[in-house]
Nucleic acid binder design. Structure first.
Lengths: 191, 191
DNA sequence: ACTGGATTTGAACGATCGTTCAAGCCATAA
DNA sequence: TTATGGCTTGAACGATCGTTCAAATCCAGT
């Protein structure tokens, strides 16, 4: 049976996502991957390199899910809202209610500049993906075209960060969740 | 010269705030405090206990600053906006652009339940403080009284989390900052 | 000056960290 | 069957982690 690199990376990503960079030890990762240190270092290089690849794996997954949401919905805007709901409501199964990129940017310091910059870069990619969906909505007259879509995307991203952080801090506030999502979504639509 | 417990705690708080719980070693703290391990453990108990006291110190400071802002301003609402601006704009001197409580809640897991719960508790305290200021504003007819002030406070806290996280992730976006603050503030006022 | 209790010191502990590498294993080719 | 080359293994490394504690130091009261 061949070694499944993708699956191993998936396990590592979930662990890093749940516990963060510093609190996740290589020994825990070895256990989750069912691999011995030598193999891991041969495949991924180092803990930092592995984390970087985990970030990229996570970001690629997120963008794919956004694209899937848009495709499965009737309109770009509906797809966007579906994505937001999916992300915020489905946080029970996820390793963390928060975005792994935001968590990483929150945790990392100048001691790991490369990782910090990579996380920022990938998060900017997400913002651009949002902007593209919003531009689509504008092209289809679903959204007023007199506001810069990148500005809307920025506002949306900020709101989404706040939403997911709030859920993390107040996990029992699931009741208010749908209304909060609506507030966020409507708030930024009418901006 | 007597040992200044408050000053020592202040140094520790700044370190924890900047680097988080796991990435801050006791040796770094010893250096920042200019104290030897024995003295620290005699005064504060353990790393966890020290961090808990740092959280409390930080939260008390934050509430005091909010109160000061309200007092120095002409109205509760103006005080609130001043506080938000102060917090978001003045993040250059601060150890981190993000709230230490939010950072902690983001970083900590079930491996340190007590710290996690304490951070959540203190953050709820902040939210309540917001609610009180908003209730004041309602009492002075500065804000419509037909919306629950605790609901407004919740929304404000979510927005503030998003704002500070966004600034952290996109530190070069200081240009859009004032407009973002306005958006946040106005957005939640008209809700 | 002397004493006794409180405080400060810093070496050292065991545990765990990220990482390495010689030795063992296994599939393929001759 | 044997030789070869790459992959896997897990013990072990030095560094650092949080923490302890006996010894040194300090200072108030006599």
């Amino acid at each position: 049976m061949k070694f499944d690199r993708q699956e191993a990376l998936h396990q590592a990503t979930d662990l890093f996502w749940a516990k963060g960079f510093h609190a996740t030890s290589m020994r825990t990762i070895q256990q989750a991957m069912d691999m011995r240190p030598g193999s891991i270092y041969a495949s991924f290089g180092s803990k930092e390199a592995l984390f970087k690849q985990a970030l990229q794996y996570y970001a690629a997954n997120s963008q794919a899910r956004l694209a899937a949401c848009v495709e499965q919905s009737d309109s770009p805007l509906a797809g966007l809202k579906r994505f937001i709901s999916e992300v915020v409501m489905g946080c029970d199964q996820a390793p963390s209610s928060m975005c792994m990129l935001v968590k990483s940017i929150t945790e990392l310091t100048e001691d790991n500049v490369e990782l910090l910059l990579e996380a920022k870069r990938l998060l900017n990619g997400m913002e651009q993906a949002f902007a593209e969906v919003l531009a689509q909505a504008q092209a289809q007259q679903q959204l007023s075209g007199d506001v810069d879509s990148t500005r809307l995307a920025r506002y949306l991203q900020m709101q989404l960060m706040g939403l997911r952080a709030y859920v993390r801090a107040n996990s029992d506030a699931k009741e208010h969740l749908e209304s909060l999502i609506d507030d966020v979504f409507n708030g930024f639509i009418t901006t």
